[in-house]
Amino acid sequence: MNRIQENADGWISKDVWSACLSEDDPITPGDQIALGFDGSIRGDATGLVGVRLRDGKLFVLHLQENPRDPNRPDWEVDALAVEAAIANAFKTYRVEWFYGDPPYWQETIGRWALEHGDDRVFEFWTNKPLRMVNATERFHSAAAVQDLSHDGDPRLTGHILNAVTREVPQGTLITKSSPRSKKKIDLAVCAILAFEARADAIADGRLKIKRRRVVGF
């Protein structure tokens, strides 16, 4: 049996991520986007990240993190807030492709597919190593050459920089620095799924670029 090897190397460096910052051309309602969702119930964070199809710009749509408050030992993710975030994303933007990690949320993702279209909402099992390795490597390569960007949201930046690499037989995945670490990486997973959703949406021919009409004189 192949053994997983872990190391403490940062997945994406601060310098690389900073170079991908783009404060111009903000995301606006009506933009074509893809979505990545990673959900939990209690322990890990639950997040939703979008990415614009035409330029690969990432942005955070929702995040809930366990506050680790001893006065709230029974804290759980607010499922209604998640539902509202999903509904608002589909209402505000032209969502072309959605990837959601099913554990804890499989029935809900199935319902979202019924509500928003099973040609737009899909499961993406992050525990399937080969598929996740390929998606992770594509994201990393795009960041290295600035083929993606982000709006500087500190929540996404924090999760991206918290992620360290984990070697499996299929290649490189990301993980927390230790199982008990309070430094979350869930938005990094969401970003990977969103970026993969964007690639599949474009490959499916869903990117529609409006061209300005040029009037001659």
Rank of each mutant, 00 (worst) to 15 (best):
R120N: 15
Y104W: 12
A144V: 14
N88K: 14
P26Q: 04
S177N: 13
A87E: 03
R111W: 12
G10P: 09
D31V: 09
V145G: 08
M132I: 06
P67S: 13
R3V: 04
H140R: 06
N2R: 09
R42W: 07
S149A: 14
I86F: 11
F90P: 04
A191T: 12
I12N: 10
V82W: 00
F217V: 10
A79Y: 04
V95D: 02
K183M: 14
V145S: 15
D101H: 04
I109N: 11
R68T: 03
T126F: 04
R211C: 13
D204T: 05
Q64M: 00
A135L: 10
K182M: 12
A143I: 13
P67G: 13
V168I: 09
L61A: 07
A84E: 10
V60F: 08
D153Y: 00
R213S: 07
G47T: 02
K184N: 08
T165R: 05
M132W: 01
D69V: 12
I109L: 02
L35P: 08
G36F: 01
G117W: 01
T136F: 02
L193W: 10
D151H: 00
A163C: 05
A34H: 06
S141G: 14
K210S: 12
F37C: 02
D24W: 11
Q64R: 02
A199I: 11
F37H: 08
D55Q: 00
